[in-house]
Design a protein around this nucleic acid. Structure first.
Lengths: 170, 170
DNA sequence: GGTGGATAGTTGAGGGATCAACTACCCACG
DNA sequence: CGTGGGTAGTTGATCCCTCAACTATCCACC
């Protein structure tokens, strides 16, 4: 508990860091669990479908390229294809060829999709409010946003530099 | 963008809250994505298996009741049963009847499980360090821990009170 | 103008997650 | 006792995700 060698200080986390890390893990896990369960039990859209439609709703013509959507939602292309296929079967979105790039596909929100989004929004937002926003002091929540933006940036960088790091080991 | 009615102020989030919320979502998504990818590409254990073994490693006799494990990892009982079955087949853990409660099952880490944990730990910790800890100022990281502990508590409460809330609507 | 390497998106097979049903057991209360 | 409601854990059908392979297109360069 007390003394650590130099190596250990560099490799492991301190007690305080460990504790913070555990709280982070538990917090994120329990939060998505709670929010997802609100969606599954009371709303017409899963959390994933809801997020997808939110993105679309903010795009011009409520339409986006598949790959832009995948990046924004942090989904693999393959997963997005499957998800959109299911949502298309339910009439929530529709796909059509993109103009200007014949490889591209546009995903557009349908009227039914918009209606589902409108139906789900109040329940979704009120759950986010109840479970996340109101559990924290305003400054805490604001800080959480700023800190997680840094984490997002750092994670993005980590994804891109992986091979670069192994190169450094040569 | 400017004026909101009283109702809207109560139902929706402000611009600043929205931004913080989006950053939170993106940050958590990109982080698990980045950390999971380190496990999948370079370590002998997936992130989920690793977390399970970490929990076991800290318990007396490296043994825990299935339900305790499920609660600690925020997994459904069913999911834990399936996961442990797969890990048992790989020789990482073993199950045996719990004494004192004949319904209970104990899950214990094997030597091979411990070895796998030891092998995975340095890569895991260094990824957490690189992507999360060192991306933030020490105070920021410490604050993140404290804030997420509150979120965990609030989410736990939300999970338990769901039916209670509908009762309030009668 | 055609070749090579990147990018956009899809597909299907296999593995993992979810949900509802089920067995087995505990325990409080009559 | 014994009955009833709760808890512990498992099962299997179904659905969803992942991964690797594939087609089709774009574009830079010679």
């Amino acid at each position: 508990m007390a003394a650590q060698t130099v190596e250990e200080r560099d490799i492991w986390l301190t007690e305080e860091q460990q504790a913070a890390w555990r709280h982070y893990l538990e917090g994120t896990a329990r939060f998505v669990e709670a929010l997802g369960s609100v969606h599954d039990r009371t709303l017409p859209l899963s959390l994933g479908e809801y997020s997808l439609l939110v993105q679309l709703s903010e795009a011009p013509d409520r339409t986006m390229r598949m790959s832009t959507l995948a990046d924004g939602l942090v989904l693999s292309r393959s997963r997005l294809t499957h998800t959109v296929a299911r949502m298309e079967a339910r009439g929530l979105v529709s796909r059509c060829a993109a103009e200007g790039d014949r490889r591209g596909v546009n995903c557009a929100m349908t009227e039914a999709g918009y209606a589902a989004l409108v139906a789900a929004a109040p329940g979704h937002v009120s759950a986010v409010r109840r479970i996340l926003v109101e559990a924290l002091e305003p400054e805490e929540f604001e800080m959480l946003g700023r800190v997680m933006a840094k984490v997002a940036a750092s994670s993005r960088a980590a994804g891109g530099t992986e091979e670069g790091l192994t190169v450094l080991c040569d």
